[in-house]
Amino acid sequence: MPTPRPDVLDFLATRRSRPAKTLGLPVPDRAALMPLLEMAARTPDHGKLEPWRFVVLERAALLRISAMIPALPGAPDAEAVLKAQAQYGEAHLAVAVIEVQQPSPKIPPIEQTYSAGAVCLALLNAALAAGWGANWLTGWASHDRGFAEGVMGLGSHERIAGLIHIGTETSAPPERPRPDIGAITTWVSE
């Protein structure tokens, strides 16, 4: 019989991301952030390939990136440019989780993508469990190759899986509607 962890189950049942625009100071310093990154790196990585890495974006870097957004040619419209600028310019700390595709005869690329996404969720949950506010964002700029390579310095085999914004929660968001599990679950007995 399994031994339940009620504290962990309660956390998972009630976890709620905090909107990035509501995250303020202080943010975790390097000593506080490193254990969160270590927790995120415990994610299953399908063959021990470690198909991901971290880029920690501190305030000065976020401001520099925000200023570069308007020059990117891939923006869908002016509103999207402003939203992307705010995502970076109003942030105090964000961790970019970078998917790094590894050559492997056994592990297909899609499984490496899933692992990078799992790292994003693990980092988000680690930050929330440590008492920080956190949010997982992407947006058009994070999927733009010019941004990925020209602004973030990524290689052609890398892409941004997510930007995990971490800071001090300044306001608690209301609970939002959750999926109807009965409507999206199929049971197969035979």
Score class of each variant (00 low, 15 high):
residue 39 M to E: 15
residue 65 I to S: 04
residue 35 P to E: 10
residue 65 I to D: 04
residue 37 L to Q: 08
residue 48 K to C: 12
residue 40 A to V: 09
residue 56 V to S: 13
residue 50 E to Q: 12
residue 63 L to Y: 06
residue 65 I to R: 05
residue 49 L to R: 07
residue 47 G to S: 07
residue 43 T to L: 00
residue 35 P to A: 11
residue 43 T to N: 00
residue 58 E to M: 12
residue 48 K to E: 14
residue 36 L to W: 06
residue 53 R to T: 14
residue 41 A to G: 09
residue 39 M to W: 13
residue 48 K to W: 13
residue 55 V to C: 12
residue 65 I to W: 05
residue 60 A to Y: 05
residue 58 E to P: 06
residue 53 R to Q: 12
residue 61 A to Q: 15
residue 57 L to C: 14
residue 61 A to L: 11
residue 54 F to S: 08
residue 41 A to W: 00
residue 54 F to V: 07
residue 65 I to M: 06
residue 63 L to R: 11
residue 38 E to Q: 11
residue 48 K to R: 14
residue 55 V to K: 15
residue 62 L to P: 01
residue 40 A to Q: 02
residue 34 M to I: 07
residue 53 R to P: 02
residue 49 L to V: 07
residue 35 P to K: 12
residue 61 A to T: 13
residue 37 L to H: 10
residue 52 W to M: 09
residue 42 R to A: 04
residue 43 T to S: 01
residue 41 A to C: 02
residue 60 A to N: 07
residue 42 R to S: 07
residue 54 F to D: 13
residue 65 I to Q: 09
residue 52 W to Q: 05
residue 46 H to P: 01
residue 64 R to L: 06
residue 65 I to Y: 05
residue 41 A to K: 00
residue 38 E to P: 03
residue 33 L to R: 02
residue 60 A to L: 07
residue 41 A to L: 10
residue 62 L to M: 11
residue 62 L to C: 07
residue 50 E to C: 04
residue 36 L to H: 03
residue 50 E to N: 03
residue 50 E to Y: 00
residue 62 L to Q: 10
residue 39 M to G: 09
residue 45 D to C: 04
residue 38 E to I: 08
residue 34 M to A: 09
residue 38 E to V: 08
residue 59 R to W: 14
residue 52 W to D: 10
residue 38 E to C: 05
residue 39 M to A: 15
residue 54 F to H: 11
residue 51 P to E: 03
residue 39 M to L: 15
residue 61 A to Y: 08
residue 51 P to Y: 01
residue 65 I to K: 08
residue 54 F to C: 06
residue 43 T to Y: 00
residue 43 T to D: 01
residue 61 A to F: 09
residue 57 L to F: 06
residue 63 L to S: 15
residue 40 A to W: 04
residue 34 M to V: 02
residue 48 K to A: 14
residue 35 P to Q: 12
residue 62 L to Y: 09
residue 45 D to A: 04
residue 36 L to T: 02
residue 42 R to C: 08
residue 46 H to E: 05
residue 56 V to M: 14
residue 35 P to M: 14
residue 64 R to H: 10
residue 41 A to D: 03
residue 59 R to M: 10
residue 64 R to G: 12
residue 50 E to V: 08
residue 45 D to R: 01
residue 36 L to P: 07
residue 63 L to F: 06
residue 36 L to D: 02
residue 52 W to G: 05
residue 51 P to V: 00
residue 61 A to S: 14
residue 61 A to G: 15
residue 58 E to C: 09
residue 37 L to R: 08
residue 36 L to N: 02
residue 55 V to E: 15
residue 49 L to D: 08
residue 47 G to Q: 11
residue 46 H to T: 03
residue 45 D to I: 06
residue 44 P to C: 04
residue 52 W to N: 03
residue 44 P to L: 10
residue 59 R to L: 15
residue 53 R to E: 11
residue 38 E to N: 05
residue 48 K to M: 12
residue 51 P to R: 00
residue 56 V to H: 10
residue 36 L to E: 02
residue 54 F to R: 07
residue 52 W to K: 05
residue 56 V to W: 13
residue 65 I to G: 09
residue 46 H to N: 11
residue 46 H to L: 01
residue 53 R to V: 09
residue 65 I to L: 04
residue 40 A to H: 02
residue 54 F to M: 13
